[in-house]
Design a binder for these strands. Structure first.
Lengths: 336, 336
DNA sequence: TTGTAGGCGTTATCAC
DNA sequence: GTGATAACGCCTACAA
């Protein structure tokens, strides 16, 4: 299968390669008639510019690398969706590099890899910018998503606010207050602050109301441990109780366990989750919904603007979770 | 940060660029002394060849594209591990492209993308070769992993055999036999045959023993639906019962539900899973273990051999699941 | 065995 | 506005 080159297009359109290149890259100085001739030659030949050649020629490769932790959640699928949408609109290609462990990260940073050869870098969840800066990779713009740092563009969810909303609502609901957090057992480099932030927001809200938390629990992020902790909590509980489960995974385990014990959720026992996973509506879980796709989309826009030459100071885009009230808190609105 | 080029290396080593290139690509005709001079210049300068330039120059980019359905299950993490290991050993770089939906696939096939520009392609789980062939992509070698096709190299798990082993063991355990399958609600193109194969092997084994299955169920691949189906099954069950759950996700839901009902698993109720997930040992689940990393590694080797010039007919590498017996079937060995 | 030169497909810099 | 032409970094003849 012969692949047409820019030469072929130029010949067919009866112009020089320079002109074709100008059309390709949206340069201004091209007469409309010429541009159309070129465009039709392009589509007739089904011509696609070679990204490697573009890169070599000192230009762009029109490729973005996304460094993604491999955590088995829907969160990253949705995030990717938002990112890809934006990049696709700008005709950039996206490659994913799974951040399984530290050694892999080091490899990606070894400046020969594709991850590094891309025009830009999207880092998710972990703020690894220090590592990047110490390698002086000033030439490759980068954006942080689902995390925030000081000297780098980022799009992040306000988890403190999410925790705070949950705390205020829990306080309004009344009963003995309990919470369960996710423990992130990663090393210093790979640390994510998501859950500590949710916790600080929650505790702040409770504290502001002059209330106290009757019990705090911790679970790792897997359904087996979540289940064990859920059993523990329901054993300990003093009714009436309101539980803030800082991830829907944990809330789901609590719902399961409550159901297994014949407890009705929404009255003496109220549960608030976090994430609004697809099943949350079906099971009537009150939870915090996050505009994940929007966050991904915006992160991509930040990076694209850098690629377009933006040189201002680092920008941070904040996204807010939204409380979705369902039957697990008795459908009681904030003011009841 | 200045990146040294092949010119810099040549100058430093006091040789021509051609020689450096020869060393880089392991060509024979280089005197040992010269080679060493070049190698030390390379390491002194910390030189890394530019993959884009290599590709442009008609050579290799030393890049492999892996097309993965959502990366979020442990299966793919392990598969990736095997793949990356082999490719890394051969000094190839791996980029992942998430196959979330059909439109994305079409994009990847649009021959401008990086996915397509790589030296080789790894397709996982779905056999999309027809699509590729119809586009006459003869120039890019490809391997199928976790799926099999006729005219393409592949490394696959023998799921028929896995189902068969489960069937024979279930038959030996006795009791009323039940099974639950995973329903794959994908379109024709994206279809995976994994579960229909497990089913056919299982039914064959049962049939060979002149036994019948008392009940078959179906669940989608998510924990919520798995739970619903598990409840249904335990409602319907006639004891003593032996259940083959064709994925550990389903087996886990059954274990949960049995525990919630105070049933002891391993005696009147026996459960066989499939996958041997990390938690399976802890929970004493009898299940089928798959050599996933080995399959990935072998798939990579198949592709690498093509890149090295192998032109023979398509090869298929079969991998066999292995029964791991634990307490969920009363630790009873095959012959008890 | 090794150096030189031409070419890969594109962009950028010139003149015109 | 547009067409030559020199890069970009590398590989591969070809000649020495």
């Amino acid at each position: 299968m012969y692949k047409p080159t820019i030469q072929d297009v130029a010949r067919r359109a009866g112009v020089g390669v320079g002109t074709v290149s100008r059309v390709l890259n949206n340069h201004v100085a091209v007469r409309t008639a010429t541009r159309e001739a070129v465009l039709s030659a392009i589509s007739e030949l089904n011509y696609i510019p070679n990204p490697h050649a573009r890169r070599i020629a000192g230009g762009r490769s029109y490729t973005i690398s996304v460094l993604l932790p491999v955590i088995t959640t829907e969160f990253y699928v949705r995030l990717l969706d938002g990112l890809e949408q934006a990049f696709q609109e700008a005709r950039y290609d996206v490659a994913i590099f799974p951040l399984l462990d530290r050694s892999r990260l080091e490899r990606y940073l070894g400046s020969h890899t594709l991850a590094y050869q891309a025009d830009g870098l999207v880092m998710t969840t972990y703020n690894l910018t220090q590592l990047f800066q110490q390698r002086q990779q000033v030439d490759q713009p980068m954006v942080l998503v689902d995390a925030h740092g000081d000297d780098v563009d980022c799009a992040y969810m306000d988890n403190v606010m999410g925790g705070h909303i949950a705390g205020e609502y829990a306080a309004a609901l009344g009963g003995n207050l309990y919470a369960v957090w996710v423990e992130t057992e990663l090393d210093q480099l790979f640390t994510t602050r998501v859950f500590t932030e949710r916790r600080s927001g929650f505790l702040q809200a409770i504290h502001d109301r002059r209330l106290t938390v009757a019990g705090e629990y911790t679970s790792s992020f897997d359904s087996l441990n979540a289940r064990t902790v859920a059993m523990q909590m329901l054993d300990d509980l003093q009714f009436p109780a309101t539980i803030f489960a800082s991830a829907d995974l944990l809330a789901g385990a609590l719902l399961d366990e409550a159901q297994a014990r014949g407890l009705t959720v929404g009255d003496e026992l109220k549960i608030i989750g976090f994430d609004d996973q697809p099943w949350a509506a079906r099971r009537g879980l009150t939870t915090l919904n996050q505009p994940i796709e929007a966050m991904g989309y915006e992160a991509a826009q930040l990076l694209l603007s850098r690629l377009a030459g933006e040189t201002g100071p680092a920008r941070a885009r904040r996204f807010e979770p939204r409380l979705v009230i369902r039957s697990s808190t008795g459908n009681r609105s904030f003011q009841d």
